[in-house]
Design a protein around this nucleic acid. Sequence first.
DNA 1: CTATAAATGACAAAGAGGTGACATTTCACC
DNA 2: GGTGAAATGTCACCTCTTTGTCATTTATAG
Lengths: 245, 245
Amino acid sequence: MVKELELSVGEQEESASAPRLGTILIVEDDPRMQKVLQRVFSVEHYTVVTAGDGQTGLDLFRTHRPAAVILDLILPEISGRELCQTMKAISNDTPVIVLSAVAEVVDKVLLLELGADDYVTKPFSPRELMARVQAAIRRRRRPAAAMTYRFAGCELDFQKMTARRGEVPIPLTSHEFRLLKFFTEHAERVLSREELLNEVWGYNCYPTTRTVDNQILKLRQKLEPDPSNPRHLLTIYGAGYKFVP
Amino acid sequence: MVKELELSVGEQEESASAPRLGTILIVEDDPRMQKVLQRVFSVEHYTVVTAGDGQTGLDLFRTHRPAAVILDLILPEISGRELCQTMKAISNDTPVIVLSAVAEVVDKVLLLELGADDYVTKPFSPRELMARVQAAIRRRRRPAAAMTYRFAGCELDFQKMTARRGEVPIPLTSHEFRLLKFFTEHAERVLSREELLNEVWGYNCYPTTRTVDNQILKLRQKLEPDPSNPRHLLTIYGAGYKFVP
DNA sequence: CTATAAATGACAAAGAGGTGACATTTCACC
DNA sequence: GGTGAAATGTCACCTCTTTGTCATTTATAG
């Protein structure tokens, strides 16, 4: 056990202070570009494994299960396209970011058809690549459910941040949306003001509990058929609020 | 090592009146920060155990099975990341809250990938840390406890704060719920009025014992089939009350 | 700078819990 | 058994807390 710990600690070469964030698999045949990419991700504390051809890339993919793959489409032997599809077949959850020369005619639709999650055209800024990779990883974490919710004639889309009663759109502010989202995620449960402040407003700001009441008031005015007789956003005296669809 | 353990496991034995809420394991190498954290959780009636390095942290984790772990990522010997993953492997249900210096480039998503449940960047407010820890503990507990209770044709849901006799909903106030919850949690035991006042009303307020009788009365009227001949909320003359399902 | 949203504070309204008086029951002692 | 003191049941009233609502101030975004 201790041995295992020691062993895995040993995997980190330098700075023990900087945590390794995950593994990035780079599949790229140009050695110079390999070096560049390796540096880009190393300095941001990722572990990097590199493959110069498709077969090696596939092997490394299987063995390392990287957090993301950087894939140059132009490869010898196995084409980048094939490799992309194969990797996606193995693990659809691993984001693949494609590198492509600007000269290539890149049809984004085609790329997405292959299963790629994003693409960057050379020459690219390290910053941009990093941002796209991190975004892709982040997206993977959130399975991106339908994020649509219906209750009592209202339809909410938390991704689009839109609300409608029938065909009539209801304007909601971002706070109102977050609050409403939290309510829908915890329907039927009594939620105290403290809980709501912590979970919806955040831990750093401490508005008075009056603020919660106010937002509730606004939501009721916008969503309840009869705001003075709420049927969905209920007050539980001495406890907090409860949402019932 | 043993010495350090004994030293760090400085559990507070005072105030018998305040119930211990659970154990918090703090893994932090900076002694000053250790002290601060220890105080934060002690005053909120948690038992605190502290480790100055990863190996000690792991040992304490195994032996104490804490309700939550506060983990500083920067640790000597075993890296915080390894420790986090190891603890998560041992018990995924124990929430781990990571402390990180603001300077570090910390991607929350990747932290969560490690298994951490939340993170707080230094410098942090004790309130914020507390709120996050409690939220994490609450989240862990949620799916486990159905929080529903049945007796004599009545069904109680303490999360929704609803009570039903068959299909007929019974309106109960929040105090009545708290009292009833305490009774169900200590069924068959004789509970003195003082005990009830302390546990249900709180330690700071001292209403007369008549108040308890009143609430009992209300509960009987609402829950007992024949309020004048109680079969569940029994009076124990000279001692208090007893709940029998 | 303007417009919008969020936070705050003040006040009113409602509801719940606490209190005390009195009736009733229980138990102990005779 | 009968009696009395103490404990408990019950009720109505009152008070205080909690909440609804609006106006105003402060913050934020464009």
